[in-house]
Amino acid sequence: MFAHLSYDVAHLIGATVLMAGFGLLYQRRLQAVLNTFAFQALALAAAAGWQAHVQNAPHLWATAGIALVFKALLVPFALHWLVERLGIHRTVETALSIGWTMIVGVALVALSIMLVLPVTAGAAALTRESLALAMSVVLLGLLMMITRHNAVTQVVGFMALENGLILAAVSAKGMPLVVEISIAFSVLVAMILFGIFFFRIRERFDSLDVQYLETFRGDRQ
């Protein structure tokens, strides 16, 4: 009975992370996107904490702490600050129709399930379904990076993708803590680099819409 319950709770938290991934696709305002991302990171921290409790693995508590402090608090606050500084906090994106994005999102979830279930036929049930969930989160992050024009939301898509990776890692037994910490710090470094990058892009093009980058041909015009 208890094993069943722990399995179900792990799933429910994983599904919450996935729902937050859909929430990211649904939101169009930058600040709402950032809040949804913070919520996703919070759910991820809960997932890691639950796995630490179930697997009796103390190092997963560190993972949960990293997710909570860095991703649910630090990164969203930094992005909020950046958005305020750049003066784009009222931006409404109308890149691709939200409805179509969501439909593609559901198709991606179905795809990842069809992919993961046959491949991991031998693995434990807990790992298999969590892996399917995590892969869906990764694909949704990729989808967000493709469909959005604004550089900030693309970065959020990247971070969401990374959330999916961590979700996969905590559900599989035995990810070393060193790897975990180095990923967390590289995400932070990436965050700082992105921040500098935002200012550079805006300085150059007076906008954070990356479509301007596509037609840019250097200084040779």
């Binding site: 799933h11 599904a15 729902m19 859909f22 939200i98 969501m102 298999r128």
Partner: peptide, 24 residues
């Protein structure tokens, strides 16, 4: 349409995940 389409997709996901837990 986005809001209620979202509801439809969530219900669809519920069905998909039902089959996943059946398969596992």
């Amino acid at each position: 349409a986005d809001f209620l389409g979202g509801a439809l997709l969530l219900a669809l996901l519920a069905t998909i995940f039902h089959y996943v837990s059946e398969a596992v």
